[in-house]
Design a protein around this nucleic acid. Structure first.
Lengths: 391, 391
DNA sequence: AACGATAGTGCAAACGTTTGAGATAGAAAA
DNA sequence: TTTTCTATCTCAAACGTTTGCACTATCGTT
């Protein structure tokens, strides 16, 4: 016989036990036909006394005898609020160690002031340098940056995009993975209203803004340089066919060969997935050729470094037997022996421009036109391509 | 005379214009003593018809004739919900292309399933490799990772921590900047209830869990190796005094000198802030000494690379005149000529362990004890320390 | 029949902020 | 004056989810 009062009629006699619910005894009042359990602690009270309770704008409002709305506006320097009030609120906020709850703020405003960046990897300083550019412009404009690595995997890229969308980032800056061949998913998202900027490794899709290096021009300069060094058979190691950087650079290479009346040799045009394995096998194939190439133009510095290391292992002299040039200008190229001739695309500038382009689109979403910007670069001649030593 | 009806009494004659408010004409009804403006579009209707409206659990509930609560639980595989319902809900959710609104979810649940990571920079593959380890374990456990770079600046580190706390991350993994000398802020936050793990570059504070490399042991091995190579005067280039890695490695160095009855020379112990400038000036100082060192032990691979490059510029032969060793095992060490002897701390393992430690603490927050874990490493002998060539 | 347990579901509050629009008082203009 | 305007502040709804607890139906046990 439980000695329990009914919360409605306050009687004791009419109470019956009526099972357990969530580890608690449950009671039933015959009279009132009402079920209940004990231990109704006020949730509110519990929260407010918790030791890591954070002050809210309501607390500030109460403390100052004004509404939370005014506090909210004052903290954000809203013009509706008088300067005096604004100042006072901000001081009290500081005193009370108020920190905005971004979860609540973002939720209420549907804006996160955050952009998601997707890059293939961080195994060289190449992409991290672009990141640097992005971060710089972002933080100057009050944006946070979430970085996701696709590890050159299409599936991961997709998952990352999905996760970022779920987190309601305000924008997406993406540099595709080497294994990405379908780019339409981007269009789907950009239809949903968030602006996307594609950078460096871009898709052929015409629906997004893009920031590119001067790929064709760069490849032309590199190829010209190699010809000037007296190279006759220039092998080119490309990335995957699906990426436009591959196409564009190949074009530059072919342009110069044509201009110099050299017939391109299909055997010397190789596509890879940027992996160590695929690159080494290309090099091995070429070394087995009757007519070896006397220069190798790599579409990335990382590939070029793999090539140099592999050639060294095979006791081939770089640059005298085979010259090697890269593309991009990664910090590593300076370190390796011989130091790497490369086309310096300004990675950091690409990053900055990408973020700026996003900001432009974000601000005037109405008339956001698709823009394509290309960033200048320059040839950086170092040791790996200078054949003159032997004379 | 405006032809406007009062929304209350529906009269036209009683209406007066009463100023502008937010670009809209405002009216006043004399009779009802009521102010109003026109153009009351239903916000609700507006939202639901917007082109990028996202389905919510309420929509799913309505579609299926069940409550949003049940949908919410079903989507998260809550045991209260019957398997049949769960399955059905999940199918409908898929059909309706439902995606959870993480802003709302995080806000309501006060959890973000996100951890913040603070690292000094990404200018070498050193920290990105630790990041890799963290990411791996994190994503396996359904955690997202936000990366912040302090750029070796204390102020930035602080701001990053603040920003992460405002975003209500569930945890913080921090590797201090070189300029950080005050570590107490960490304790403040860990008091607030979120768990923090300090990794690699740790503070002396006893209040947080830590993951360390075997610094002293590693430095001992390195120093021993140099002595075995016949080096008599080993210079050591350290980081800033405030970091424990500096202390610990110095200790290892001193231990071995003592063991071999070599009196340490204060001139050969240099503190730096890891910057190119400060390192080069140390090297220059040493080269001006009457008795130059015959080996330089650098506390980081990046420093070692700066040293090698600088020595090359000054036409000093490495390793024969001066041997150089690093600490850490950065990818770059393999590239430089001569390749760099270094102590391989397993960066990726450090990252993994850090994240695991966090998870442990997070899961049983009640009895979360402070843990300190050290990760094994091994000496990696390459060219830059082998003096035997000349004999 | 009375009671106790349990499984499955729904109700409504809560989370902390933003936001549209109403309210008020005093200033400016007519 | 009367009317219009403006500056400043407040009200209340909304955002999409989670969560504590109530509710119902059903089944098993005395």
């Amino acid at each position: 016989m439980p000695r329990v009062k009914c919360p409605k009629c306050s009687k004791v006699e009419t109470i019956l036990k009526s099972g357990f619910i969530r580890q608690k005894q449950r009671y039933y009042c015959k009279e009132c036909n009402y079920n209940f359990t004990l231990n109704h602690e006020s949730r509110k009270a519990k929260n407010k006394t918790r030791k890591n309770y954070q002050t809210t704008i309501v607390d500030i409002g109460n403390a100052m005898g004004i509404s939370a709305t005014t506090v909210s506006r004052a903290l954000r320097n809203h013009p509706d609020i008088s300067p005096a009030t604004t100042l006072a609120v901000q001081q009290v906020a500081l005193q009370m160690e108020y920190r905005p709850n971004l979860l609540a703020r973002n939720f209420a405003s549907k804006q996160t002031q955050t952009i998601g960046v997707i890059i293939p990897h961080l195994q060289s300083t190449f992409f991290s340098s672009m990141l640097g550019g992005i971060q710089k412009v972002a933080s100057k404009n009050g944006f946070k940056v979430i970085i996701c690595l696709s590890n050159e995997d299409y599936q991961t890229e997709l998952e990352n995009v999905q996760a970022l969308m779920d987190s309601r980032v305000d924008g997406l800056l993406v540099c595709h993975s080497a294994s990405t061949t379908a780019f339409d998913y981007i269009e789907n998202y950009s239809k949903k209203g968030i602006s996307i900027v594609n950078f460096y490794r871009t898709s052929p899709s015409p629906k997004t803004s893009k920031v590119l290096a001067k790929n064709t021009e760069g490849a032309e300069k590199v190829t010209e340089h190699l010809l000037e060094q007296g190279c006759k058979r220039i092998g080119i190691i490309l990335g995957p066919k699906s990426l436009t950087i591959t196409e564009e650079r190949l074009l530059g290479y072919l342009n110069i060969l044509k201009k110099n009346k050299i017939k391109p040799d299909k055997e010397l045009i190789a596509y890879t997935d940027y992996s160590n394995v695929s690159i080494n096998s290309v090099v091995d194939d070429w070394l087995n050729l009757d007519q070896r190439p006397d220069a190798i133009f790599c579409i990335s510095d990382r590939s070029a470094i793999y090539v140099i290391k592999h050639l060294k292992k095979r006791k081939i002299k770089v640059p005298n037997e085979i010259a090697v040039v890269g593309f991009g200008n990664d910090l590593m190229g300076e370190l390796i022996e011989p130091s790497l001739t490369t086309y310096n695309i300004q990675t950091s500038v690409i990053g900055e421009t990408t973020m700026q382009l996003f900001l432009q689109q974000y601000k005037n979403e109405a008339d956001s036109e698709i823009q394509i910007q290309t960033i200048d670069g320059d040839l950086l001649v170092r040791e790996s391509s200078i054949k003159k030593k032997e004379k």
